[in-house]
Design a protein around this nucleic acid. Structure first.
Length: 114
DNA sequence: GAGATGACGGGCT
DNA sequence: AAGCCCGCCATCT
């Protein structure tokens, strides 16, 4: 999944994938939330970086990961952002006028976290 | 060890 | 609401 040879062991990125794979359809999580679950509340950056290596071949529902504002970030570029929105809408996730998701309704938390 | 990258997050203007 | 700056973290080179 990583471009280099970091695949030799379970890296932070791998943990990101595992967590995201646990997100059910129709729900979303934020980068910061994932980072928090992984033990590094401030590693939101690294989380995004991890998903950055996820091609469509992965079993990871990367589109269920959004930024703290419930909006698609992807730095707002390319079809990826549009694809993510389509995928989410296909799962029943509604976007508001501002292009953001109501995290209060769609945010998912793993069992055992609360 | 040091420099550079990036799908983030928060604060200020 | 939109734009700009800084801090944070993990990884790559």
């Amino acid at each position: 999944m990583t471009p280099g040879r970091a695949t030799r062991r379970e890296t932070f990125y791998d943990r990101v994938c595992q967590f995201v794979r646990g997100v059910p359809a129709g729900h979303v999580v934020t980068y910061g939330q994932v980072a928090l679950e992984l033990g590094s509340p401030a590693a939101a950056r690294a989380v995004g970086y991890a998903l950055h290596f996820l091609p469509g071949d992965s079993d990871v529902p990367w589109w269920r990961v959004v930024n703290a504002g419930g909006a698609i970030s992807l730095r707002g570029r390319g079809e990826a952002a549009e694809l993510q929105r389509r995928l989410l809408e296909g799962e029943g996730v509604a976007f508001q006028r501002e292009g953001a998701i109501d995290l209060r309704s769609y945010r998912w938390t793993p069992p055992g976290s609360g």
